[in-house]
Design a protein around this nucleic acid. Structure first.
Length: 279
DNA sequence: ACGCGTGCCTGTTGGC
DNA sequence: TGCCAACAGGCACGCG
């Protein structure tokens, strides 16, 4: 399940591969992944050049320039099982392939970009920058955790009354955190996932930012966590799954004390925590 | 207005 | 052995 570190890894992998190259054509293998406005922009995407590949929240962004010099964006939300892969030009689509981009470099070198998604939760959005406000999910995204300080982070939760894990997962408050990094950061901060936001000391929210930044940056260094489906742009697994302290380890020993990690449902998600280390 | 529960999807896993 | 329920979870949506 690609969260911030995973999408960041994919963007960093794709950027040098795709920048300056041209999208020669697009094959829509599963119409579900494009909404009507995106479909209408498809002719502009074909023949556009790729200026840069980046990330906002969990969205992978291809910054495009159309043949008639308009700016255009291609945003991919990978949800749980989405992958964006660069592959040799002769690579065939597979049963999970949703979009296929034929790419051409200035020197005529050809390659393929595949958007695969087994569970079909993911989507791709073609949109002009001036229309981004019409993309409601985009419009309400909160700040990037790696671009704010601890005080600003703590302020994201002002006035919230629910559980801290639910708030961390809420992309309108702060972006990029999913189930893995919510559990990992709350463990490292010593905060129970079901703690109510108003009951958490300000100092603990500041600390939560510090450890969240540490966890996210360490995971980016390791090219993300490959639990099952996530792959880098080159199709490789990440390595951070080997460093996870609590996610997926229910019933195993807590890394920092002698009791066993517990699992429960918080905010509708499976949640693992240490009943002793997290208050 | 906010918090919570449900549905969307499909492949994998584990129990009987 | 084979079947099938449970599970994985980001986010849209509807409800109270």
């Amino acid at each position: 399940m690609p969260e911030l570190p995973e999408v960041e890894t994919i963007a960093r992998g794709l950027n040098p591969e795709l920048s300056g190259k041209r999208i020669a054509s697009v094959q829509v293998l599963d119409p579900k992944v494009l909404d009507a406005p995106s479909l209408a922009l498809l002719p502009l995407v074909e023949n556009a050049s790729i200026v840069k590949v980046s990330r906002r929240a969990k969205i992978l962004l291809l910054q495009l320039q159309t043949a008639d010099n308009q700016e255009l964006l291609a945003g991919f939300h990978l949800k749980m099982t989405g992958r964006v892969l660069t592959l040799p030009a002769e690579t065939e689509a597979n049963k999970h392939s949703r979009l296929l981009f034929d790419i051409e470099g200035a020197n005529g070198a050809k390659s393929r970009l595949l958007f695969d998604d087994m569970r079909r939760f993911g989507y791709c959005k073609f949109i002009k920058p001036q229309d981004l406000h019409t993309w409601s999910f985009w419009a309400k995204l909160g700040p990037e955790p790696l671009e704010i300080n601890a005080a600003q982070f703590a302020n994201c939760f002002a006035g919230k009354r629910g559980k801290i894990k639910a708030a961390l997962l809420d992309q309108a408050l702060v972006v990029g955190v999913g189930n893995i990094y919510a559990d990992e950061s709350l463990f490292k901060a010593g905060i129970r996932p079901d703690a109510l936001v108003p009951n958490i000391k300000h100092a603990d929210l500041l600390r939560l930012h510090t450890v969240l930044v540490e966890v996210l940056e360490e995971s980016i260094q390791a090219c993300g966590s490959s639990i099952k489906d996530y792959r880098t742009a080159g199709g490789e697994a990440g390595a951070f799954q080997n460093k996870l302290q609590v996610y997926g380890r229910a019933g195993q020993k807590c890394p920092s004390c002698d009791c066993l990690l517990e699992s429960s449902k918080v905010a509708g998600r499976s949640t693992v925590f240490c009943p002793k280390c997290q208050k």
